[in-house]
């Protein structure tokens, strides 16, 4: 349970400002970026007209996102946003999935360890402390101990900072695109509502227009809901895993939950985040 409250933080000051940084999340983000870059190079290294397995996989993923984007934004606008949207999608997806790796290796290590122990008798020891706390501790000299000692990975999206950064990127894209497309005046007029007329000099009355403030608040709260949706789901899944594995240590139930929250919720939340980004762009376009 102390996993919940312990957050590693490095603090330093740059030009008088105090900066605090979570090094694990930082490293994990770069790991995700490295995985994606290597994956992209591997997929596009030898492009053929008749795609191989890897290229086929990449094309399916890309075409899916392209379909969704073009379907929402229209042919011309859609095409120009596909690279950004696809990048957001695979980043969030990889970030949601990267936390699973240590659990899988640990589970494999446990199975190998239990079988090894059953045959040779010196693979480790069973620590029996009631039904809920029975667990297998492997011997540090065995060949599979490395699987157990695999470092703990954290999903970058489990930290609110990553999610807020992604949400702010989408926010900036949405509003810059809206201003570029419609001109600042029309964009600004969109905040006025219908009670006070918003043409000509009437627009100068915006400080007394209550709808102006409500629309601004609803724009800001869309960033909050966009990023907290991802954060809440990933963090909630992690928390369920912590609670369940603290109740039932190293048994099969945490692995089943992990497969559910890690793989399924990861892909659903990545899709939802991407779709909402497309929707926000389309609304203001």
């Amino acid at each position: 349970m102390d996993k919940l409250t312990h957050v590693p933080i490095i603090e330093f000051s740059v030009m008088g400002y105090n900066v605090s940084l979570n090094p694990v999340i930082f490293l994990m983000t770069y790991l995700v970026i490295a995985v994606l870059v290597i994956g992209a190079i591997a997929v596009t290294r030898r492009l053929k007209a008749v795609p191989g397995t890897l290229q086929n996989f990449g094309e399916i993923l890309y075409e899916f996102i392209e379909d969704v984007t073009v379907g929402t934004l229209g042919e011309k606008d859609g095409k120009s946003f596909v690279p950004l949207i696809f990048t957001i999608f695979i980043f969030v997806l990889a970030a949601n999935w990267i936390g699973i790796l240590p659990h899988i290796t640990q589970f494999l290590g446990m199975i190998i360890g239990v079988i090894h122990h059953a045959f040779t008798g010196n693979g480790g020891e069973w620590v029996i402390d009631g039904i809920m706390n029975t667990q297998f501790r492997p011997n540090p000299h065995t060949f599979y101990y490395g699987l157990f000692a695999f470092p703990e990975f954290q999903e970058p999206t489990r930290s609110i900072n990553t999610d807020l950064a992604l949400g702010l990127i989408v926010f900036a894209v949405v509003h810059i695109n809206a201003v570029r497309k419609n001109g600042f005046l029309d964009y600004f007029r969109g905040y006025m509502g219908d009670i006070i007329p918003s043409h000509g000099f009437w627009i100068l009355l915006f400080p007394i227009n209550p709808f102006f403030y409500l629309n601004v608040i609803s724009e800001v709260s869309s960033v909050v809901s966009h990023s907290f949706r991802l954060f809440g789901n990933i963090f909630g899944g992690f928390m369920i895993l912590v609670i369940v594995s603290s109740l039932v240590k190293y048994m099969l139930i945490p692995v089943g939950l992990l497969a559910f929250f890690g793989l399924f919720a990861g892909v659903v939340q990545a899709f939802v985040f991407t779709m909402l980004a497309i929707t926000y762009i389309g609304q203001k376009n």
Partner: peptide
């Protein structure tokens, strides 16, 4: 009519959400 329906749905939901805001 998927595109039209989705668009209307999102606008309708955004307005229903006003009281939540």
């Amino acid at each position: 009519e998927q595109a039209l329906i989705t668009k209307t749905m999102i606008i309708g939901q955004a307005i229903s959400e006003t009281t939540g805001i």
